[in-house]
C-alpha cells in the first residue's frame, strides 16, 4: 500500500503576464483519486500543475497537504510526489538504463531492466537516448513509475507520442497505482480510454 495523501487546493489563482490562467480554483486530491486537468491549448494545464509543485508563482490561494499548509514551502509535498513534465528529463547522451539509474539510484540493474521490460524497451536498454524515437524516450521516463514508491503522481501530457499499446500499458499502471491507494493528477486534452477520472476543466 502507498502512503495515504490528501492535497487540498483552495481558491488558487494563477496569473501569467496579462492573462488569468485560473481564478479561485478549488479541488482536492486524495488516495485513490484520478484527477484529469482538461482544457484547450494555452488554458494553463501545465502551469496549474507547476503552480501546485511550486515553480510557477501563485497569485492567491492556499495549498494544504495532509493537514499542513505548504503554500510557502513545498518540501513535504515534494517528498511524496513524482513529476514527469512535458519534457521528462531524459538525457540524450545516456542510454535508457543510465537515464533510469540517475533517477532511481537505489534500485539494482535487474530491477531497472524489469521496468524497461514493462515499457517494451528492454531491447533498447543500452542504446543512447539520442537514437530513440520521441515515444521511446517518453517510455524511458514512464518506466520510473514502475520503480517508485511515491504516492502522488503528477503526469503532464504523459500520452504524447505513445502508441496505442503504450497508452493502454500506462493506463493499466495508473489503475494499479490507484488501487494501491495512490493518487494521480494528469493533464491531457484527449479523454482516457478505460479509466474515468474526475475532470477539472480550465477555460481559456
Amino acid at each position: 500500500m502507498r502512503k495515504t495523501v490528501k492535497l487540498d487546493i483552495k481558491n488558487l489563482s494563477i496569473e501569467r503576464g496579462e492573462r488569468d490562467l485560473c481564478c479561485e480554483l478549488s479541488f482536492s486530491v486524495q488516495s485513490g483519486d484520478l484527477i484529469r486537468i482538461a482544457g484547450e491549448n494555452g488554458a494553463g494545464k501545465s502551469s496549474l500543475m507547476k503552480a501546485i509543485l511550486g515553480w510557477v508563482p501563485i497569485e492567491d490561494g492556499e495549498l494544504i497537504y495532509n493537514g499542513e499548509d505548504v503554500t510557502q514551502h513545498r518540501d513535504m509535498l515534494l517528498q511524496d510526489q513524482l513529476y514527469l513534465g512535458h519534457t521528462p528529463g531524459i538525457k540524450n547522451v545516456f542510454t535508457a538504463l543510465e537515464n533510469l539509474k540517475l533517477y532511481c539510484p537505489d534500485k539494482s540493474d535487474r530491477q531497472l531492466e524489469q521496468a524497461l521490460e514493462e515499457v517494451q524497451l528492454f531491447a533498447f536498454a543500452d542504446i543512447p537516448a539520442a537514437q530513440l524515437s520521441a515515444g521511446q524516450k517518453r517510455r524511458i521516463a514512464l518506466a520510473r513509475l514502475w520503480l517508485t514508491d511515491k504516492s502522488l503522481w503528477f503526469l503532464d501530457e504523459p500520452f504524447t507520442a505513445l502508441d496505442v499499446k503504450g497508452v493502454s500499458v500506462l493506463e493499466e499502471k495508473m489503475a494499479a497505482h490507484l488501487s494501491e491507494g495512490g493518487a494521480v493528477v494528469i493533464t491531457t486534452h484527449q479523454p482516457l480510454l478505460h479509466l474515468s477520472p474526475k475532470v477539472i476543466e480550465l477555460s481559456v
Binding site: 507547476k50 519534457t87 540524450n92
Partner: peptide, 16 residues
Amino acid sequence: KEDYNDGSLEQWLASG
C-alpha cells in the same frame, strides 16, 4: 542549456 531543454531542471526542482 541542455538541462533546460530536456526538462532536467524541472526534475531538479521536483526532486526536493
